[in-house]
Amino acid sequence: MLILTCPYCGVAADETELACGGEAHLTRHGPGSSDDAFHGYLFSRKNPRGLHVERWRHVQGCGKWFHAARDTVTLQVFGTYPAQSHEPPEDIVRAIRRRHPEWTWKGAA
């Protein structure tokens, strides 16, 4: 039973007020995309043991989607941020690196 703080309304929401939406920062592939690219987008979702950046919706609350960076093993939460982002913000990356020094966003340096 997680608690995640909604970055929109500031509520430390109980898991029963939230809905999980799986891997965050997907790139949509539409008509014209290759079969491999489309297959990857539609079906190949990350579900790692360890650091995960996930989509959540404050469904029993303000209704907004947000992202959470958390460790699926220890359940440590490194931060939440609005879904209208293309990558985790710097302060959250720093928080992640304090625990996972080797971690980089999508393999970037």
């Binding site: 929109y8 309304c9 500031g10 509520v11 303000c62 209704g63 907004k64």
Partner: peptide, 17 residues
């Protein structure tokens, strides 16, 4: 955010951003 001003007869509730 997270607040209401006024009351039933005339009020404003913050629902989301």
């Amino acid at each position: 955010g997270g607040r209401i001003s006024g009351d039933r007869t005339g009020g404003l509730c913050w629902m989301s951003p």
